[in-house]
């Protein structure tokens, strides 16, 4: 399988990754959803969404607040049982094999999600521990990770005293510490300055190069451009799904901002 991606330029800017239009064998899809639906009483939060995500792909999951992104993501993570439809994550069924799904995914939420009263190393050790990694494995990988993040001098620093950008990079690294096949990122860069955001995306690209599929929701349209493909959710349905380039062509828009606006202004559900 070949994912062609234009590597980050020297100045740090990313061009949009472009997937060649080619047939990919079914086994290459790590996320497959077909008519996935979630209803809460009369309210249909997610309405028959269908999409596939390839291994190693960076898949942007966009939509206004209340569009149903979070509900969809929770179904994919095995946190919420769908009302109808089919979906497999890393080959596991979202109805029956939620435990296997959990073993194979990483997750980072919009809320910062490490323990602030634990040190950097303790956080890594804890999360490694609950994924069942051995102590030795944890020690080796933690060492490597701390060097990569430039946090080596800070392994005994309480996470609460790190700057937000570092915390977020650390949270991401912890989310993929157990080498999952997919990592779900729920608005991971909220409240972070643009420079740190770009550094954060360096990490995402690195993970993707290592074969980890990245499923990311975001509100930042510049971030949307960094994704290989984007889906746009409006009122519980996927209204558009393509590469950023193609989407801009399709909607005759100059930027993703315009594409988003074009799609989202028809929304009936307002943000929450």
């Amino acid at each position: 399988m070949a994912i062609v991606r234009i590597a980050p330029a020297v100045n740090g800017y990313f061009a949009a990754g472009i997937l060649p239009a080619k047939e990919v064998a079914m086994s290459n899809y790590v996320i497959e959803a077909e008519n996935l639906t979630k209803r809460f009483g009369d309210f249909t939060a997610v309405n028959e969404i269908s999409f596939h995500v390839e291994k190693g792909e960076i898949f942007g999951f966009l939509g206004a607040n209340g569009a149903g992104k979070t509900t969809a993501m929770r179904m994919l993570c095995g946190l919420s049982i769908p009302s109808s439809g089919k979906a497999t994550i890393a080959g596991f069924d979202v109805y029956k094999q939620t435990e296997s799904i959990k073993q194979n995914i990483g997750y980072m939420s919009q809320k910062f999600s490490l323990y602030e009263d634990l040190t950097v190393l303790e956080n890594i050790t804890f999360f490694g521990g609950i994924y069942g990694l051995s102590r030795k494995e944890i020690a080796v990988k933690a060492d490597q990770l701390l060097h990569e993040l430039g946090l080596f001098d800070h392994e005994n620093t309480l996470v609460g005293s790190l700057p937000l950008g570092w915390k977020q990079k650390l949270a991401f690294s912890v989310a993929i510490f157990h080498e999952p096949s997919i990592v779900f990122l729920d608005e991971p860069t909220g409240g972070v300055d643009p420079v740190t955001r770009r550094q954060f995306w360096d990490l995402i690209y690195k993970a993707s190069d290592a074969g980890i599929t990245v499923f990311v929701t975001t509100h930042y349209m510049d971030e949307a451009e960094y994704c290989n493909r984007i889906s746009m959710m409006v009122d519980g349905e996927i209204k558009a799904l393509d590469t950023p380039e193609n989407l801009k062509k399709q909607f005759n828009a100059r930027s993703m901002d315009d594409v988003f606006f074009e799609l989202a202004r028809g929304a009936k559900r307002s943000g929450d």
């Binding site: 946190l79 939420s109 609950i130 994924y131 779900f184």
Partner: peptide, 13 residues
């Protein structure tokens, strides 16, 4: 409140 419960529930624990 801290959002760590989500992480724990997503984990195989």
């Amino acid at each position: 409140e801290n959002g760590t419960m989500e992480i724990l529930l997503v984990s195989p624990f």
